[in-house]
Simulated scan of single mutants.
Amino acid sequence: MIRNPYESSEPRVSVVIPTVPENDHDAVVAALRNQTVAEFEVLVVDDATLDICEARNAGIEAASADIVALTDDDCRPPPDWVASVESAVSDGAVCVEGSVSGGRTYRGTGLYVGCNLAFDRETALDAGGFRSEYAGWRDDTEFGWRMESYGPCRYDPTLTMEHPDRTRASIDAENEARLQREYPTRYEERIVPKTTLGRVNDWLWRRGVWDAVDRVRYAGGGR
């Protein structure tokens, strides 16, 4: 099911939010109603039968605008987010990533975090959209790396997103290995740590230690 909680007669940006019925998406829609521009639409893909890649693809296909922006049901876009999306993608890029703060932190290292990602709709369709083999882990990274073959992709520091809670995603070793196998050069350049401390942190992360630490931290109400 795709709902349009916010519509425009001539949207310049289509915001796609994949979700499932048990998740609340009222707060993210409320934040989108408070944007500094009005010429955009919001598509909530609310279907428990679809994985996240299928839901995003359904939203991309249903979008009316030339520019699609992705966020998640547990995010809070700032008031200038849609305006920043339009400016970033209209500048000639086919895919633009932004920063994330809060329960998840990201500052733009070519991994294309899906809760703050914008792209040209036709290019995304030509690229085949999101691949369900990666659903739940690295689906956004793989999509961004594939989009790099179709045109300029970049990080834009003006594109910011608040992710209040810790991410629901957890490491999928099979998907991680698939990404490394399919994109060995980019994986080595962007994911494999270059320092001893980085390698130690990476070893702990891959074995779920930092996920366990976060579960304890968030259970106690920490940030």
Rank of each mutant, 00 (worst) to 15 (best):
D66Y: 04
D66L: 11
D66S: 14
D66T: 13
D66P: 09
I67S: 10
I67L: 07
I67M: 04
I67T: 15
I67E: 09
V68N: 13
V68W: 07
V68D: 07
V68P: 13
A69Y: 04
A69R: 04
A69C: 12
A69G: 11
L70T: 05
L70P: 15
L70C: 15
T71G: 14
T71S: 09
T71K: 01
D72F: 07
D72R: 08
D72M: 05
D72T: 15
D73C: 15
D73Y: 15
D73E: 12
D73K: 04
D73T: 03
D73H: 15
D74L: 02
D74C: 05
D74Y: 07
D74G: 01
D74F: 10
D74V: 09
C75T: 13
C75N: 06
R76D: 08
R76F: 02
R76C: 10
P77T: 01
P77K: 02
P78D: 00
P78E: 04
P78M: 02
P78G: 04
P79V: 03
P79N: 07
P79D: 11
D80A: 09
D80W: 09
D80C: 02
W81L: 03
W81G: 03
W81H: 11
W81I: 01
W81A: 04
W81F: 13
W81C: 01
W81T: 06
V82A: 00
V82C: 05
V82M: 02
V82N: 06
V82I: 13
V82L: 11
V82S: 05
A83V: 06
A83G: 10
A83W: 05
A83M: 05
A83R: 07
A83E: 14
A83T: 08
S84P: 01
S84K: 13
S84N: 14
S84I: 01
V85K: 07
V85L: 03
V85W: 11
V85R: 00
S87R: 12
S87I: 08
S87E: 15
A88E: 06
A88H: 08
A88T: 06
A88P: 12
A88W: 08
V89D: 09
V89I: 11
V89G: 00
S90I: 03
S90Q: 11
S90N: 14
S90T: 09
D91G: 12
D91E: 13
D91Y: 11
D91N: 15
D91C: 12
G92I: 06
G92N: 12
A93D: 15
A93P: 05
V94A: 07
V94T: 09
V94Y: 08
V94G: 05
V94S: 05
V94L: 03
C95I: 10
C95T: 11
C95F: 07
C95A: 14
C95W: 09
V96G: 11
V96N: 06
E97W: 05
E97F: 02
E97C: 07
E97H: 05
E97L: 04
E97V: 06
E97I: 03
E97R: 03
G98Y: 03
G98W: 02
G98T: 03
G98S: 06
G98L: 06
G98D: 09
S99D: 01
S99N: 12
S99G: 14
S99Q: 02
S99E: 01
S99V: 01
S99P: 00
